[in-house]
C-alpha cells in the first residue's frame, strides 16, 4: 500500500518518524521497567545460577552454605551458622496434640515466630490456633483472631500447622520440584529454587504454607543464629515457606520449639519407628484423629481428647 515508487519521499519521511517513534517507545519502556534494577542489583550471579538442592554435591553445598552465611552477615550484620543436617537414618517424625490440654494461649505460635526467624511486622508463624465451639470440630465457626482470656467458656482450641502428610498434595503440584518430602517425613522447601507460583499454597488443605510477600524484616538482636538451609534461615523475598518440625533442632535430637514453649504440655513429638517413643504410646493408647482424613493426605500430625 505504501510501497508505490511515487510515494517514496513520503515513505522515507515515514521511516524516520517510525524510527523516532520506536526509539521513544524503547526509551519509555526502559524507564518504565527501571525499578527492576532495584531487584537485579541485589541478585548475584551465584544466586541466579544456584543449582537445585538435590543436585548440589558436597563441595558445592558447602560453598552455598558459606555464601548464605556471608550474605546474612552482610545484610543483617549477624554471625549465623547455616547447617544442613540430614535426616536421621530410620527415624520418621510425628506430632500429636492433646486438645483437652490445649488452652489456646498461643505460646507455640510465638515460639515458632522467634525460632524460625519470621518477619516481625506481620507476626508471621507456621502455627495458627483456631478457637472452636466446644463439642464441634466445625471449622465454619473457627476463628484465629480471638484475644480474650483463654480458655473461654464453651470454646475449644485447635492449633494447626504443617501436617507433614505422607501423601502431600503440595509437593505433587510444584512445577519445579522445589518442595519434597524427606526420608524422616518432613516436607521441605528449597527457598533458593522456589519460583513463587504459590500453587502449593492453593493445594494445601491445612493452610500450612506461607509466602514471603516482601523481604522478612528481623532486628539483628532477635535473629536466631542457629539455622539450617532447609528450615529457619532467613528466607528470600518471593518464595514459599512452611513448618519443618524445626528440623535444625529435631535432626539433632532436640525437641521442636513449639513443644518446648507449650505451657500446658499438650504437645507430644517423637519417632514413629521407635515403639518405645512417646508418640507411639499416644497412638497405642489414645483415640487419635487427623484433620480432613477424607482427603487422603495421610497426615503425620495427630489430635486427641482425653476427656
Amino acid at each position: 500500500m505504501s510501497s508505490e515508487p511515487d510515494e517514496r519521499e513520503g515513505s522515507s519521511r515515514r521511516t524516520v518518524m517510525k524510527a523516532a517513534g520506536a526509539t521513544l517507545g524503547l526509551a519509555a519502556f526502559a524507564k518504565a521497567v527501571q525499578p527492576l534494577t532495584e531487584f537485579t542489583d541485589t541478585l548475584t550471579r551465584e544466586q541466579f545460577l544456584q543449582k537445585h538442592y538435590k543436585e548440589l554435591d558436597a563441595d558445592e553445598k558447602q560453598a552455598v552454605l558459606a555464601r548464605l552465611e556471608a550474605e546474612a552477615k552482610a545484610t543483617h550484620g549477624v554471625d549465623v551458622t547455616i547447617a544442613d543436617p540430614p535426616p536421621i537414618e530410620g527415624v520418621k517424625f510425628a506430632f500429636a496434640i492433646n486438645l483437652s490440654l490445649c488452652n489456646g494461649n498461643g505460646k507455640c505460635v510465638e515460639a515458632c515466630h522467634r525460632e524460625n526467624n519470621h518477619d516481625r511486622a506481620t507476626n508471621q508463624s507456621y502455627i495458627r490456633v483456631l478457637e472452636l465451639e466446644r463439642g464441634s470440630l466445625d471449622l465454619g465457626s473457627a476463628d484465629s483472631s480471638y484475644d480474650h482470656a483463654v480458655p473461654a467458656p464453651g470454646k475449644a482450641y485447635l492449633p494447626v500447622q504443617c501436617q507433614q502428610c505422607d501423601a502431600p498434595p503440595c509437593t505433587d503440584v510444584c512445577p519445579v520440584e522445589a518442595t519434597w518430602k524427606e526420608k524422616d517425613g518432613i516436607v521441605v522447601v528449597d527457598y533458593d529454587w522456589c519460583i513463587g507460583c504459590r500453587y502449593c499454597e492453593a493445594a494445601c488443605p491445612y493452610h500450612a504454607r506461607r509466602f514471603n510477600w516482601t523481604k522478612p524484616e528481623i532486628p539483628a538482636a532477635e535473629i536466631n543464629p542457629n539455622q539450617s538451609y532447609l528450615s529457619n534461615r532467613i528466607r528470600p523475598q518471593g518464595v514459599v515457606e512452611k513448618c519443618t518440625f524445626c528440623l535444625h533442632r529435631t535432626r539433632e535430637g532436640r525437641l521442636p520449639a513449639c513443644l518446648e514453649a507449650c505451657p500446658t504440655g499438650a504437645r507430644v513429638f517423637g519417632d514413629m519407628n521407635d515403639e518405645r517413643s512417646e508418640i507411639r504410646w499416644i497412638l497405642a493408647n489414645k483415640r487419635v484423629f487427623v484433620l480432613k482424613e477424607e482427603l487422603g493426605t495421610k497426615p503425620s500430625f495427630f489430635y486427641f481428647f482425653d476427656r
Binding site: L43, D172, V176, A178, I195, P236
Partner: peptide
C-alpha cells in the same frame, strides 16, 4: 514471586516436575 527463576521450569535445564504437576 521470582521471575528471575523462571528458567527452573525449563525442561532439562531446570527441574520440570512432569508429569506430576
Amino acid at each position: 514471586g521470582r521471575p528471575d527463576r523462571i528458567w527452573h521450569m525449563l525442561p532439562f535445564i531446570g527441574r520440570f516436575h512432569f508429569p506430576m504437576s
